[in-house]
C-alpha cells in the first residue's frame, strides 16, 4: 500500500464502486430464492412420502429437476454473498480474510458443481 499520495493510501482498502453491485445481486438472488424455495417447500409438502422410489420418480420429471438445479445455483449464490459479508465483518486481518474468502469461493463452487451433477444424474437416469 502506498504512503505518499492520498489515492495511494486508500487504494485497495474499501469501496471501489463494487458495493452496489454486491447489494443488488443479493436482492436479485433473494427474489429468486423466494420463488424457488416456496416452490420447493410446497413440492415437499405435496409429495405422498419421502421414499427412495417416490423421490427418484419426482426427479425424473423435467420441472422438478430444473427447479432443484436452479434452486442450487440461486441459494448457493445468495449464501456466498451473505457469508462474504460475515467474513468482512468479523475477520479483520487481511491475510486471514483472503484465506477465508478463498476457502468460501472454493467450497461454494465445489458444492454447486456437486449439486448440479447429482440433479443431472437423477434427471437422466443411470443409477
Amino acid at each position: 500500500m502506498g504512503n505518499g499520495t492520498s489515492i495511494g493510501r486508500v487504494r485497495g482498502l474499501g469501496s471501489s464502486h463494487h458495493g452496489a453491485h454486491h447489494w443488488l445481486l443479493q436482492r436479485f438472488t433473494a427474489v429468486g430464492n423466494l420463488v424457488l424455495t416456496a416452490w420447493f417447500a410446497v413440492s415437499l409438502v405435496l409429495l405422498p412420502d419421502y421414499s427412495y422410489g417416490t423421490l427418484r420418480d419426482w426427479f425424473a420429471h423435467p420441472v422438478p429437476a430444473t427447479g432443484v438445479a436452479l434452486l442450487i445455483v440461486c441459494t448457493f449464490w445468495h449464501a456466498r454473498l451473505g457469508m462474504q459479508i460475515m467474513i468482512e465483518d468479523y475477520v479483520h486481518e487481511s491475510g486471514s480474510k483472503f484465506a477465508a474468502m478463498a476457502a468460501l469461493n472454493l467450497v461454494v463452487f465445489g458444492a454447486v458443481a456437486f449439486g448440479l451433477f447429482c440433479v443431472a444424474r437423477l434427471a437422466l437416469g443411470a443409477a
Binding site: Y52, V68, A79, M83, F114, C118
Partner: peptide
Amino acid sequence: GNGLAVVGLGLLLCWLGTLVSG
C-alpha cells in the same frame, strides 16, 4: 442465514448425494 448456508445447504447436498448413490 449463515446457519442455512452451512447446515441447510449441506443437508440438501447430503440428501441429493445419497439419493444418487442408490
